[in-house]
Design a protein around this nucleic acid. Structure first.
Lengths: 199, 199
DNA sequence: GACAGGAACGAACGGTCGTGCTTATTTAGC
DNA sequence: GCTAAATAAGCACGACCGTTCGTTCCTGTC
């Protein structure tokens, strides 16, 4: 890894941390440079546009997400255990990959939902992929006989992500320490329903 | 209503619309003035600080929310019907009170979750109130015998708001037209569970 | 008809933003 | 250890930000 690549790496890591707090738009080149003891122009040269910086920050976040949320869960047994692992890893991930402002994808989702452009496009793809990962795990759980055949994997993923979002909301905005526990209760109810498959 | 008050009213209505798209921080005095054919300074005089403008925009949003979501639902029968009304009204409200960028509270929740100040304080209060309204409706549904006695109203409100948040996410970021239908399915499952009170 | 008050305006302030250019320094290959 | 290329810095730009100030316009009262 050359010197430039190394610097770029440090920049993106810091960008990830910063963007979690102030968003992708609030992520300012000057502030980012200041935090890294770099000049604005020196930092800017690595990307050549703010948009590129934003996209690459998302890319970096996605890589880390894969690394600390998705991949480790593949070590868990197929089906419900893997789904549990995905859920628990998601709860942890804003602390493991330091995001003092909470999950960057949640922040970016709200920020970019009305701003067309490459960053938005990339984010949409990433969020779809994440929902697909969840739905895929559900599908496997059905195959394994953990869940009832009538369970709709996409619907399950939808509702599960809802629990994650409200957990984020309750713990970050409302500073409710009970949020993860509430989320777990919701998750367990979702699992119970999938086993029985009343709906 | 005096002339000044009338103008202030128009400003706040426009601010609500604009803030739903670009957030409370992106809500710029210059842009707001431009949209209303006012001078920056003329508009500014009505508030005397951007922070005050933000808080009053939240206040205005809260008043409208009360008006089109909460109050009409009080016309529905106590218990489950009222809860349904609250849910359906929530789904509609970003269109009724024009918010082209989606629910302003969702946007502000993510934007302000790490920015201390009066705007954040006010928002926290408003979101707590909203969750309390939902939990209160659940409590009534228990009294009415619609729901099982073991149902935890706050937990129900938590999970219900999760469905609302993921619906917002799916329809706004992912542009998924099936989002409201999915949300309804999740809501129905929540209701079914509360009747049976398995958890 | 002079006057007072509220409402809006236009210009300007200091600051920060993203983005170019040009120059200096560091790094890597021989 | 020298050289060419990669990397960072310095400086300046135009645009927009929130905010202030002095002025003008309009309305209604004595």
């Amino acid at each position: 890894m050359g010197k430039g690549e190394q610097t770029r790496d440090a920049i993106l890591e810091q960008a990830l941390t910063l963007a979690s707090q102030v968003g992708l738009e609030g992520l300012t080149i000057g502030r980012l440079a200041g935090a890294l003891d770099l000049s604005k122009s020196g930092l800017f040269a690595h990307f050549r546009s703010k948009e590129a910086l934003q996209v690459q920050t998302l890319e970096r976040a996605a890589a880390r997400f894969e690394e600390v949320v998705v991949r480790p869960a593949l070590g868990a047994a197929r089906g419900e255990p893997r789904l549990r692992a995905l859920f628990e890893n998601w709860l942890r991930w804003p602390r493991i990959v330091p995001q003092p402002g909470g999950c960057i994808f949640v922040a970016a989702s709200v920020e970019l939902d009305d701003r067309p452009g490459p960053a938005r496009d990339r984010l949409v793809r990433l969020q779809r992929d994440w929902l697909d990962v969840l739905a895929g795990a559900v599908r496997i759980a059905i195959q394994e006989g953990h869940f009832h055949r009538k369970v709709d994997p996409d619907q399950f993923a939808f509702e599960l992500y809802g629990i994650m979002l409200v957990c984020h909301h309750a713990s970050r905005l409302l500073r409710d320490p009970a949020a993860p526990e509430r989320a777990r209760r919701g998750f367990e109810a979702l699992l119970a329903r999938a086993r029985a498959a009343r709906a």
